[in-house]
Design a protein around this nucleic acid. Structure first.
Lengths: 149, 149
DNA sequence: TTCACTGCAAACCTTTTGCAATTCT
DNA sequence: AGAATTGCAAAAGGTTTGCAGTGAA
């Protein structure tokens, strides 16, 4: 069973980063959460379970996770959420070019991650019409999830 | 000649809002700027031309302009930029449902605004595949503009 | 043992709030 | 005149920096 937790820590280790207690705790919290979390959200959740990690460290751990593509950042809130690693190869190269979009439920806050579909056509059209070279894109959808609709 | 400045102030007036000196100054700065600006960017630009508007007022003016769809907010930075009003009807109803996407140049910072093309197809696909009801979307492209490419 | 990482203190930057003074209409 | 808007002071919130101490490999 490869959980997010195991995979994430494994990927960090592979890159020569250290598996410290604060890092394990933060990854644990992210693994359990369905919603996106801010640094303070994480701090509060840890407090609830009797663990204390300094806010500054949480910021740095988030930064590290983001740099290694283990969390997504929600554009509109700046909060982060675990990436879906389950369906992916663990291979570094394979992971790097994946493109995800988020479906954010405005009612329950749950976030679903979908893979790029059809957007490449849009991008080609944009490039053709505007002579703009697209290198990155940010796309997120807000609405109602299957449960709340 | 309908400049952004004239149109924006006209729209505010139509809604019963007052055309004050600080509002005129901020709209002026936004009109001249090609890049997106933060509240402090605006404050600094005003200082350069010898005008002083309180930071808090700038925040409130931006809020007002955003509420009336006269500025776009860049997702990744929170900065704002004038909307393209030139090609649009001034009619309230016509303006309300327009959907824009931004092309942000990573080199010179210039921002181009394009109208929704092809994304509706993507949204329909997403809704079909995921049972998620899309109500809003955020999409911006980062890359190189025609000049910088 | 060594170097990456954490914790603490403090600074910094951004944004918000309350209220009195101002100024559009 | 009357109401909307601004400016000021202050607080609140979020994020970053520097450095000494700790702990993973």
């Amino acid at each position: 069973m490869h959980t997010y937790r195991d995979l994430a820590l494994h990927i960090l280790k592979d890159k020569g980063l250290r598996i410290t207690k604060p890092r394990r705790l933060v990854v644990d919290v992210l693994d359990k959460a369905e919603q996106a979390l801010s640094a303070y959200d994480i701090k509060d959740l840890l407090s609830e379970q009797g663990e204390k990690v300094d806010t500054v460290s949480i910021y740095r751990i988030i930064e590290c996770l983001e740099a290694n593509q283990l969390v997504h950042r929600i554009l509109t809130t700046g909060k982060v959420r675990k990436c879906q690693l389950e369906h992916e190869d663990h291979c570094q190269l394979e992971r790097s070019n994946h493109c995800h979009h988020l479906l954010i439920c405005q009612k329950c806050g749950d976030i679903e991650e979908i893979h790029c579909l059809g957007l490449t056509t849009v991008i080609k059209d944009v490039e053709k019409e505007s002579h703009f070279k697209v290198r990155e894109h940010n796309l997120e959808f807000l609405g109602l999830c299957a449960k709340c609709a």
